[in-house]
Amino acid sequence: MHSVTLFAEYLRDGRIKLDKSVFAKERCTYQDPCNVSRNGGCARDAREIVKYLCEDFVEMEPHGAYNFCCGGGGGMIPMAGPFRERRLRAGKVKADQIRATGAAICITPCHNCYDQIRDLNKQYELGIKVLSFKEMFEHALIIPEELKAKEDEGEEGEKEE
């Protein structure tokens, strides 16, 4: 199973909880990795996580199973060398999609998409942050009191650092 499905399951079952206020001021969009959404069928799981995580979420058009490839798939990222320029050119479609959402954060749960969109961010000056779900969880996860480090005791009401 993909982590996206697992994380959605944890949230659904109440095993982890997120503080939605953490990213409330930043508009988010989601890049569907081909092998996760189109070929893996996990597009809905990702949207479920988004509901727990983002206040301001805008879909790319098109999205889900019909979303475009970021241009970094099929081995394109590690192939590097002579393939790099073609990869960045083909990524223009994705860059345009992201820009149209007006998002400040592009979430993607795939290392290929992640590296490609970070490159596109520079190439097409998108001015966005590229994050995986677990990177966002680092800030948004609500840590139960009993799991916190001892010195934090007595500092209740402190929501985030």
């Binding site: 081909c34 189109r38 798939g73 099929g74 394109m76 083909a90």
Partner: peptide
């Protein structure tokens, strides 16, 4: 086959 397709399967849809 290596440089002009990422095997994303969007065309199949």
């Amino acid at each position: 086959v290596y440089g002009e397709c990422t095997m994303c399967r969007r065309c199949t849809m």
